[in-house]
């Protein structure tokens, strides 16, 4: 009896989780506009954090020279361990002061409306590391819009694609 109960429970869990991962994802067109700072191109990482501000997934990396990744220490300690595959697919070129970058963010619907955050962190060689240049809650009601950055980022704009 107990055994059957357990099997059923496991089965349900699997089905639910399978279904859940099948819930799908939403695409957002994202634009990062940098301020007119002077210096090298900024390394920028866009990631999803959980309610405890722990990294869950890396969505986008602007900067393709891994030599500089350790300059984003908070993210790097997660990324190094996570061993995320297929980084190339989410990697783009750095942008410098005054420039913008546009890309598509694929956000898993699981992350919406349950306390997750979207973090944009930046680092410029020879200058500062900014852990929360932009930090916004992943709420379906407010995810579209324009978000002011605190340092190198002037603003981030997101619209559903």
């Amino acid at each position: 009896m107990n055994k059957i109960h357990l099997i059923t429970w496991i089965a349900i869990t699997f089905i639910v989780s399978a279904f859940k991962s099948d819930v799908g994802s939403s695409q957002y067109k994202c634009m990062i506009q940098l301020t007119n700072y002077s210096g090298e191109g900024a390394y920028i990482v866009v990631s999803v954090l959980n309610a405890n501000k722990e990294y869950v997934e890396t969505l986008r990396v602007l900067g393709d020279d891994e030599e500089w990744y350790p300059d984003l220490p908070t993210w790097w300690s997660f990324f190094e361990k996570a061993g995320q595959e297929n980084v190339d697919a989410i990697t783009g070129a750095t942008i410098a002061g005054g420039e913008r970058s546009i890309f598509i963010l694929d956000i898993d619907d699981r992350y919406l409306d349950n306390g997750h955050f979207l973090r944009f962190e930046t680092s410029v060689e020879h200058q500062n590391y900014v852990e929360n240049d932009v930090l916004l809650p992943l709420k379906s009601s407010s995810i579209s819009g324009k978000f002011e950055g605190s340092d190198y980022i002037r603003y981030v704009r997101l619209i559903p694609n």
């Binding site: 007119n36 700072y37 002077s38 210096g39 002061g97 005054g98 020879h126």
Partner: peptide, 12 residues
């Protein structure tokens, strides 16, 4: 330029 001894910021 690289060490920002000469500033090359774009104008306003």
């Amino acid at each position: 330029v690289r060490f920002e001894i000469i500033a090359t910021t774009k104008g306003e």
